[in-house]
């Protein structure tokens, strides 16, 4: 039971990664038909996000196996974990950056004054997780603006998805003070991806 609980965040991350790949695939399919660059950005964003999550799952499994084998964490294991965390954070930043570019493109087309992302980036450049929170916050706000304009269920689900992902990163950020928030973050992230999956299911069943 304890093992199951310990592995549940990894399992949730794996499901989130799979959903991310599915959405990325559908965006690519859309790009092939429409040649709309926004869909290509969405494709790369979700695929990179999926890859980063898979990498984290694999690394964590590997580290757990090594720690069990040697009983105590080796310096090489600690170094590998740090490197993997860095790659994970950078990959996520690239993915969220692509989402930000996409929403900024759309906002420009709609004539919104939405060039606020660079200010956020200039202000926060120290901690990668914090930048991820800021980028995702921007993406969530832009998706809310889109929801206000479109007012349909699919736009609502995308807004919910990005908002839950934003919340999950806030929880991850605060694991510094409370480790239990890691699991809460994983659950919130999974809910976010499930919202996107429901949206995709609705869209693909339209006759």
């Amino acid at each position: 039971m304890a093992t199951l609980l310990a592995f549940s965040p990894l399992f949730m991350e794996l499901i989130s990664a799979i959903i991310s790949f599915i959405i990325g695939y559908y965006a690519l399919k859309g790009y092939r038909v429409s040649s709309e660059k926004g869909l290509l950005l969405l494709h790369f964003g979700f695929v990179i996000l999926g890859v980063s999550m898979i990498l984290r799952v694999i690394t964590t499994f590997y580290v757990i196996a090594l720690v069990r084998e040697f009983r105590s964490p080796q310096p090489a294991v600690a170094a590998a974990l740090t490197f993997a965390s860095l790659i994970y954070s950078v990959a996520q930043l690239i993915a969220y950056g692509l989402f930000t570019v996409n929403y900024t493109r759309q906002a420009k087309m709609l004539g919104q004054a939405a060039i606020i992302a660079p200010f956020f980036l200039l202000r926060y450049n120290t901690y990668l997780e914090l930048i991820a929170v800021v980028l995702l916050g921007y993406v969530a706000v832009q998706s809310m603006i889109n929801l206000a304009l479109k007012r349909n269920t699919e736009a609502f689900l995308v807004t919910s998805g990005f908002s839950f992902m934003f919340l999950s990163h806030l929880f991850f950020l605060f694991t510094i003070v409370e480790e239990a928030l890691y699991s809460t973050g994983q659950i919130t992230q999974l809910i976010g991806f499930l919202c996107l999956l429901v949206m995709l299911t609705r869209v693909s069943t339209i006759k």
Binding site: A27, G38, E154, A155, V158, V203
Partner: peptide, 20 residues
């Protein structure tokens, strides 16, 4: 079939604020 697929993609893109 193509028109149906396009309608789905249009709806998908629209949910992310992408219009084409």
């Amino acid at each position: 079939q193509f028109l149906n697929e396009l309608s789905r993609i249009e709806r998908f893109a629209d949910a992310f604020g992408i219009t084409f």
